[in-house]
């Protein structure tokens, strides 16, 4: 890919974010590496509790501390290690260089201020405009994110807007300072499909016009396919597979990724039974030895139960964390259903 020659915007190296709780240490993010190039969308996909949100909060410097702490690793943003910055320095980066939107926009909007006040405040802080200029700019931003009658809307309060509109307002706020990176944590999960389609289209078109990078966090493989250039699949605090979106869907190499893809119903293909991944995600306070997927993996054997696999290059630009990915390859060729149709 052309990426090779580009400077990395974000370079996360061996990031470990732990929570030191009374019951023990929760290794929410346990040694992950990834990078984001300018203008690309990196998708992060995984089930609830696998560490997606903690990853994004770590980049934003918003991990609740205590009990949380970045225990190890670096987060390089344009070459500067964010983990070494002071609170004040981080505040400057947040909202200026990096913005974030959340799953439930209601919790991140202040219910007692009007939409206009909230967007213009962000603009005043980051662009140093006067109140009047900032209000004008707010109207422009609302227009850009497709809110009808923006002159009227700036005088309304968050509760007067629908979920889809609130998410648009969040996006407008996030973009008002021209960030280089937009982190979107499940931005469409609380929305209906037709509204989700509106928001995804909006994000794609804004990405094109602003040239920013997006880190898109979701549990929905459909959304991932729709919006990502490259994808990291997370399981139990680790990245288990990492490659470009087309390769991931055409040739998933990790048993977990393979399982996820087969466990969702497809619109264009009817099957009688879904191939479900058995069992449940292990408790983060009590992860198994060896590979963390071994409690659910149909390929698990010997070494999988004792030694944790490292993430390796299975092919160019395609990383996998599994002892047996080559065996899976063989099984896929022979059309073996690795997740049995158990009852």
């Amino acid at each position: 890919m052309a990426n090779k020659n580009k400077e990395k915007l974000v370079d996360v190296k061996n990031l470990k974010t732990y929570f030191y709780t009374e019951e023990g240490v929760v290794k929410a993010v346990d040694g992950i590496d990834f990078e984001i190039y300018p203008g690309e969308t990196l998708g992060i996909v995984g089930e609830s509790g696998c560490g997606k949100s903690v990853t994004s909060l770590s980049i934003m410097g918003l991990v609740e501390s205590p009990p949380g702490k970045i225990a190890e690793g670096e987060i390089l943003f344009e070459g500067i290690d964010l983990t070494k910055l002071s609170q004040a320095e981080m505040r400057k980066i947040r909202g200026n260089e990096i913005s974030m939107i959340f799953q439930e926009p209601m919790t991140s909007l202040n219910p007692v201020y009007t939409i206009g006040d909230q967007i213009s405040e962000a603009i005043i802080i980051h662009k140093g405009l006067s109140k009047k200029e900032a209000m004008k700019e707010s109207v422009e931003m609302l227009k850009k994110v497709g809110i009808p009658l923006p002159e009227q809307r700036i005088n309304e309060y968050p509760h007067q807007l629908s979920g889809g509109m609130r998410q648009r307002v969040m996006i407008a706020m996030a973009l008002s300072c021209d960030p280089k990176l937009l982190i979107a944590d499940e931005p469409t999960t609380a929305l209906d499909v037709t509204i989700q389609a509106q928001i995804l289209e909006l994000m794609n078109s804004l990405k094109a016009s602003y040239g920013m990078s997006i880190m898109m966090i979701t549990h929905d493989l459909g959304v991932i396919a729709e919006i990502s250039d490259r994808v990291a699949v997370m399981y139990a605090g680790k990245i288990v597979e990492y490659t470009d979106v087309n390769t991931l869907f055409a040739d998933p190499k990790h048993p977990y990724t393979w399982g996820l893809m087969n466990s969702i119903p497809k619109l264009d293909r009817d099957v009688n039974r879904l191939q479900a991944i058995p069992g449940i995600v292990p408790n983060p306070l009590n992860f198994p030895d060896g590979c963390k997927f071994n409690t659910r993996c149909p390929l698990a054997e010997g070494k999988c139960f004792t030694d944790e696999p490292k993430i390796v290059d299975a092919a160019e630009g395609h990383k996998v964390r599994c002892w047996r990915y080559k065996d899976l390859e063989e099984m896929k060729k022979q059309n073996v259903k690795i997740y049995e149709e158990q009852r």
Partner: peptide, 14 residues
Amino acid sequence: QSLLSAIPEADPTK
């Protein structure tokens, strides 16, 4: 028609 068209499909080639 629009509801069906809005479903994100887990297939990036589509």
